[in-house]
Nucleic acid binder design. Structure first.
Length: 655
DNA sequence: AAAAATAAATTTTTT
DNA sequence: ATTTATTTTT
């Protein structure tokens, strides 16, 4: 059912002042994009062309036109981005906006699934399994085949996580398991039947433990709408406008959801095919490239003017991307005055690289560039360690993005496991974690307990009443019981975390991490503190599993925004700085030797370079110490493509 | 037989 | 830093 025509926005409400403002703050194309009334709109926008800005203004325009905020769905790539966009929207409107749905596909999916959990035989307090939870479940399922599989086979599936990767690929690309195996893993065809059986067990397991994994948040949402049109229709009626940012990095299921909305309501998408960098997560650029074919009435607007960078940087970016064959033709241009030439420097190794970077950072700070306008970007998180060390040594405050996240650290997961079982007593993965960290309770005993836990209808009670108890490891079990007992009485997240610490985790921390338990302890304190922001356990846990956590944002430097940014390129998407350093442009590192898609690596470099407004530094190392031993690595293919000649120069400035 | 202690190996990118 | 493999202890 297409509801769009019944509910055209009321442009009569638009006042002169607002139109004036739009024409002042936006260029012609952006203005067009903001005010168009087509049902389907797609903005193809190069880096720095103000696409996010245009999207925010469009949302503001819709609200000014009389669309109630709760009838707008704004989908962003990260939840942090959605927070920032909401903030900008508030600034533009001049008042606090309320009721708009904004978040990632995953978080919106979680929100919708909570309301309709019974459709999937779940309770509304289902757990969300993150990647590690998922891995541990698959590991357990595969281990059940110890007798039937040979050692090599077991290793193949356990070590590289092949099985759940295939399943995830099938889920994210909307294909059958069989098709994925035939197409991408032809050597594993003989395991096809077995993998299907395994996947069924995995699905069953998730249902029993009242959980969804990340993929489910999309797939089960999509299927809900398709299988229960009466539910889906309600959302079509509810959302008058769906706005999607970073459309180039959506996968097939997300594309299907967008199509589904596009058939019944207004959809406005923005993206840049040249900035698609999530192919490894099964992002499908075709979603974007073929949207106009699927919806011929779609109005396509190209935003090609770059407002961010000086022409020298834009030119370098254009040169890079011209080596790709699969891009939509697009020529980015900048009308800014001529600025600094990008600097390309060859350094001996990571240490010299760090020294070079720090020297330049000091220069920049001396010139009056604030720390918040400086960032250091890299392909993989381990590449940042030397720079990080130097920053620490010189007491310059910084913040890292990407890489190992706070909630992925072992001690944080340990603490969270207790809260998770309290929230969802069927969360077997969390149980396993907290049981096996007790003294005297190893893998075997742990599995025995788990088996009875699954069968129990009220695990918490059965444990407290002694209906479930292990045959050995009495002391450890005592800890489990008394902790659970006290946790049930705790009222706030803060109290709960302190119960866990008091009931033995503090001692365990000291014992397991003798050299850095204090730092970890502070991390847990932070977590407890962060918990104060949440009213309930469920919102706390959900924020941790879906949001790039803002746990550290209450330190002084961060609040004053007085820090240098260290980030993986993937996490730097959509951001910009006055000065950008790109580390380790080396063969085998960037482009990475693991990366199968060279064009995607090149797009990644393109994204990195276009984050810079004025200063861009490209670094390459002669040697790299990966596992202690020096590895000689040549300069990156991308530097060769830029025509850099390194023969005699330690430091080379482009012509 | 099961758990604990010790040694060895492994690291792209993320919702 | 953290998981996995191996050896030693209970």
């Amino acid at each position: 059912m297409n509801y769009y025509n019944n509910q055209q926005s009321e442009n009569r409400l638009i006042d002169h002042e607002w139109s004036q403002r739009l024409s002042e703050e936006l260029n012609h194309q952006q203005c067009c994009f903001v005010t168009l009334e087509h049902q389907h709109i797609m903005g193809i926008a190069g880096p720095g062309s103000g696409k996010t800005r245009a999207l925010v203004f469009r949302a503001a325009h819709l609200i000014k036109s009389g669309v109630p905020p709760h009838r707008i769905l704004l989908v962003t790539f990260t939840n942090k981005a959605s927070e920032e966009m909401k903030e900008r929207l508030n600034q533009i409107l001049g008042y606090q906006l309320d009721g708009m749905w904004a978040g990632t596909f995953h978080s919106v999916g979680a929100r919708i699934l909570r309301r309709h959990a019974s459709f999937w035989n779940r309770g509304s307090s289902f757990s969300i399994l993150d990647d590690e939870d998922r891995a541990s479940l698959w590991k357990e399922l595969i281990n059940n085949y110890k007798e039937t599989l040979s050692e090599e086979e077991l290793n193949l599936f356990l070590k590289r996580r092949i099985a759940d990767r295939i399943v995830s690929q099938a889920n994210n690309s909307g294909l059958d398991l069989e098709e994925v195996i035939k197409e991408y893993y032809p050597s594993l065809e003989e395991y096809c039947y077995w993998l299907k059986e395994l996947n069924q067990k995995y699905e069953e397991r998730k249902r029993i433990m009242n959980a969804f994994d990340f993929d489910d948040l999309l797939v089960k949402w999509c299927e809900l709408f398709e299988k229960a049109p009466e539910i889906g229709d309600n959302y079509l009626l509810k959302f008058q406008h769906v706005l999607v940012d970073e459309f180039q990095d959506t996968n097939v299921i997300q594309g299907r959801l967008v199509d589904w909305f596009a058939r019944g309501t207004s959809v406005c998408l923005v993206g840049d095919d040249a900035q698609s960098i999530y192919g490894f997560r099964f992002a499908e650029v075709g979603n974007m490239l073929r949207f106009p074919e699927r919806f011929p009435s779609c109005k396509v607007i190209k935003l090609e003017q770059n407002y961010r960078s000086h022409p020298e940087i834009v030119e370098l970016a254009n040169r890079i991307i011209s080596y790709n064959t699969q891009q939509l033709p697009k020529e980015l241009f900048s009308r800014k005055p001529s600025g600094e030439e990008p600097v390309i420097a060859k350094v001996r190794d990571g240490y010299e690289e760090a020294h070079f970077v720090l020297e330049r950072i000091n220069d920049l700070l001396g010139k009056g560039v604030p720390p918040s306008e400086i960032s250091v970007l890299y392909r993989s998180s381990y590449l940042a360690s030397e720079v990080e060390f130097e920053l620490l040594k010189r007491k310059i405050s910084y913040r890292t993005y990407g890489g190992l996240k706070f909630v992925q650290k072992a001690h944080i997961r340990d603490v969270l496991a207790w809260l998770k079982v309290l929230y969802n007593p069927k969360d077997v993965v969390a149980w396993r974690r907290l049981i096996s960290m007790q003294k005297g309770l190893g893998p075997t005993t742990c599995e025995k307990i788990i088996t009875s836990l699954i069968k129990s209808s009220d695990p918490l009670n059965d444990i407290l009443e002694g209906n479930i108890k292990p045959s050995r490891g009495k002391d450890g079990w005592e800890v489990v019981c008394s902790t659970i007992n006290r946790l049930k009485a705790a009222e706030t997240v803060y109290q709960m975390i302190h119960v866990v610490l008091e009931e033995g985790y503090h001692d365990l921390l000291v014992k397991n991490y003798p050299d850095n338990w204090e730092e970890r302890f502070r991390g847990i304190e932070q977590l407890a503190h962060y918990g104060n922001r949440y009213q309930s356990l469920d919102s706390f846990l959900e924020s941790l599993s879906l949001e790039e956590s803002l746990i550290w944002d209450n330190t002084k430097e961060i609040q004053e925004k007085n820090f240098i940014t260290l980030s993986t390129i993937h996490s730097a998407k959509g951001k910009e700085w006055e000065a950008v350093f790109i580390l380790a442009l080396n063969h085998g590192i960037f482009p990475g030797k693991m990366a199968s898609d060279l064009e995607e690596e090149r797009r990644l470099f393109y994204v990195a370079a276009t984050r810079a407004r004025r200063y861009l530094f490209l670094l390459t190392r002669e040697k790299d110490f990966r596992w202690g031993a020096p590895v000689v690595t040549g300069p990156s293919l991308f530097l060769q493509e830029l025509g850099v000649d390194f023969d005699n120069n330690i430091l080379y400035e482009m012509e």
